[in-house]
Design a protein around this nucleic acid. Structure first.
Lengths: 134, 134
DNA sequence: CGACATCGTTATGTCTTATAGCAATCGTGG
DNA sequence: CCACGATTGCTATAAGACATAACGATGTCG
C-alpha cells in the first residue's frame, strides 16, 4: 500500500511518540505506575516541597486533573502544609523506593530507545526534539 | 524549578509530539479537518479503492473507530462496492478540493517544523524518528 | 483594608480509543 | 463444491484522558 505519510516529519514524530509511549507504558505497568505518575514523582523528588499546582504547570496538567493523579499516588507522597492554602509535596520512604524501581525501568527503556537510532543520528535527536518543543 | 525530565529523549519526544500536534490541529481546524481526517484522505488519494479496514490497519485505527471518521468525511468520499462485503473508497471532487487545501496547510506546517530545528540536526530528524517507530 | 490572584477540590462534559459482538460475505483446503 | 475460518462493515458500550466551570478559603499587593 502506498503511504506518503511517513515522509512528513510531523507524522513520523507522532507515530514514534505513540509507539514508544505505548512501549514504556507497558514496562511501567509492571511496577504499577503510569508515565504521568513517574513524571510527577521525579519532579517531587527533584523539588521537595513543590505544590501540586506548580507540578501541573510544569507538566501541562490541569490543576483539577492533578487530583486523581495524586490520589493514585497515595502512600508514595506526603503532604506538608506550607500555609493555610498550599501544601508541599514530598516523597515518602515508599515513594522513594517505588521511584527507584521506576527509574530503573525508565533508564533501561531510554537506553534501548537511543540504541535503536543509528549511531550517526543519535546525538542529533534530543537537540532536534527540544527545538521543536520550545 | 528543577526538571530532569527533558533530558530523557522519550520524554522530549512525547512533549514535542504533543506540542506540534496541537499546533497542526489548530491550523487544520481552519479548514474544518482533523489530523486523522487528513491522514485518511491522503491514504485514499494515494490508493484509490482501498477499504476502510486497510486504512485502519495502516494508521492503527481500529476497524470500529473508522466508522465515525468516515461519517465525518461524508461528501468528501465515495464508496464503491468491490464485492458483497467490501467497499472501495475514493475521493469525490469535493474531497480532492478539500484535500488540496489541507495539503497546503500541512506542507506549510511541516516546512515551519523543520525550519525550527537547527540546520546541523535537520537532516537527522526523520531517519532517527523512523528508526524509533519501526 | 479591599481588590484580585491562587490553591485545592468537586462536578461535569467531551473526546478518543478499546472491546465485544453481529450478520453477511469471502476464500480456501479438503 | 462446500464447510469452515477469516474478514468486512457496523452497533453498542465501556474506559480513559482531558478541559471547563465553579466553589470556599486563603494569600498578596497596592
Amino acid at each position: 500500500m502506498r503511504d506518503p505519510l511517513p515522509n512528513f516529519p510531523g507524522y513520523a514524530l507522532r507515530r514514534a511518540a505513540n509507539a514508544t509511549a505505548a512501549e514504556l507504558a507497558g514496562k511501567l505497568g509492571e511496577v504499577g505506575l503510569r508515565q504521568s505518575d513517574v513524571s510527577v514523582l521525579m519532579l517531587i523528588d527533584a523539588n521537595p516541597g513543590v505544590t501540586a499546582s506548580a507540578i501541573g504547570r510544569q507538566l501541562d496538567i490541569q490543576r483539577a486533573n492533578m487530583v486523581p493523579v495524586l490520589k493514585r499516588l497515595e502512600g508514595l507522597i506526603d503532604r506538608v502544609p506550607i500555609d493555610g492554602k498550599s501544601q508541599g509535596l514530598e516523597l515518602s520512604a515508599a515513594g522513594r523506593a517505588r521511584l527507584a524501581e521506576a527509574r530503573k525501568v525508565v533508564e533501561t527503556f531510554e537506553a534501548a530507545l537511543i540504541a535503536r537510532v543509528p549511531a550517526e543520528h543519535r546525538a542529533h535527536l534530543l537537540p532536534a526534539l527540544e527545538a521543536l518543543w520550545r
